[in-house]
């Protein structure tokens, strides 16, 4: 049964990808991309990667799609159709594909327990993390504790991307040549004012989305979830509000100064926990020294750094969306 679902999902993914190749309406391309992400999230559940599936469903199918739609609203939603099929890319793809298929057949069988990948540190994480870190979710233990340094790097990457988009799109004030500062207007509700069903449903949904985000944030130690997923879900609540009630109202709820502060605050909290563990006599990001008992320290450290991750991710996602949404299309 599982195998049948596995095969079916993979075939659906191939069909979706092929449709994207042939589709020239970019709106359809972006929506198919969202479908593709959702199918892959289903695949990840089948392959036991529940945390990854969670992230892919929230990020790939949700936020990325919204951002790409934002790009389309500011550019052109149709691809220019060319009738000639290029030969060179097809030849190159065929060549690279056959080499890869040849080498893929040399890999260990799918699902084999004695494959080399399971032999190195993974066993140790599975056997010892329960005693050393004391959390049921091994993924969270590795992410936040064993490989906390990597995760600090990832959070910094997200922080940097948020700053990059703000630099490229984010300026709300425009300084004219004579030195006068002009404030750009924020888009209001527009046509959304007439969609009563959307407005009522959104108002009903938003508190529950936020509550769910908090659950994902603080239950991530015990089940699937964690700061990355929670941050994205939390941001989704504000993005929904911005989509339905207009950017002007959304910015009134979360002023830009606040999101900008939170972007930095999350990274600083994460790095600060590392400094705190240094000061208390441990290694950088070694949480065992934070409390009297090592596992208590681990709990405290993971709770704090996951909160830092969630804060930065949520603030960056909100900033990304607002940066795209408030930029009005330039008249050409």
């Amino acid at each position: 049964m599982t195998e049948a679902v596995n095969t079916l999902l993979l075939l659906f993914m191939c069909v979706t990808a092929l449709t994207i190749v042939r589709q020239h309406n970019l709106f359809a391309v972006v929506m198919l991309g969202s479908v593709f992400s959702l199918l892959s999230a289903g695949m990840f559940v089948l392959l036991d990667a529940v945390d990854v599936a969670f992230t892919e469903a929230a990020v790939g199918a949700g936020i990325s799609t919204i951002l790409m739609l934002g790009v389309l609203s500011l550019t052109n939603s149709r691809e220019r159709i060319t009738f000639s099929t290029p030969i060179f890319p097809i030849v190159l793809v065929m060549l690279a594909g056959s080499v890869l298929i040849f080498s893929a057949l040399g890999m260990p069988e799918f699902g084999a327990a004695d494959a080399p990948i399971h032999g190195h540190v993974a066993d140790r994480y599975i056997e010892k993390s329960g005693a050393e870190v004391g959390l049921p979710n091994i993924v969270t233990s590795i992410l936040a504790s064993y490989r906390g340094f990597d995760t600090l790097g990832e959070v910094t990457v997200i922080f940097t991307a948020g700053i990059g988009v703000m630099v490229l799109l984010g300026l709300r004030r425009r300084t004219a040549q004579d030195g006068s500062v002009e404030e750009l207007p924020l888009p209001g509700e527009g046509n959304m004012r007439h969609h009563s069903v959307l407005r009522v449903t959104a108002k009903l949904l938003i508190p529950f989305i936020m509550l769910f985000a908090l659950y994902v944030q603080f239950h991530g130690d015990f089940g699937p979830g964690g700061g990355f997923q929670a941050g994205v879900i939390f941001a989704a609540a504000f993005i929904l509000y911005g989509l339905v009630f207009g950017i002007k109202n959304a910015v009134a709820v979360v002023p830009e100064g606040v999101t900008r502060f939170l972007i930095a605050a999350g990274v600083l909290l994460y790095a600060g926990v590392g400094v705190a563990s240094l000061l208390m006599g441990g290694n950088y990001l070694d949480y065992s020294v934070l409390a009297h008992e090592p596992t208590h320290g681990q709990h405290l450290g993971i709770l704090l750094i996951e909160f830092g991750v969630g804060t930065t991710v949520a603030a960056v996602m909100i900033t990304l969306f607002f940066s795209f949404a408030r930029r009005t299309r330039k008249k050409t």
Partner: peptide, 28 residues
């Protein structure tokens, strides 16, 4: 199942959306 690839890919997905957003901003 092996949790190590899960950790790597989980963070890669979030970094992926960050790069997508940056690409989108450049396209605009």
């Amino acid at each position: 199942s092996n949790p190590l690839p899960h950790v790597l890919i989980l963070t890669a997905i979030v970094v992926g959306v960050a790069t997508t957003a940056l690409a989108g901003a450049l396209i605009v």
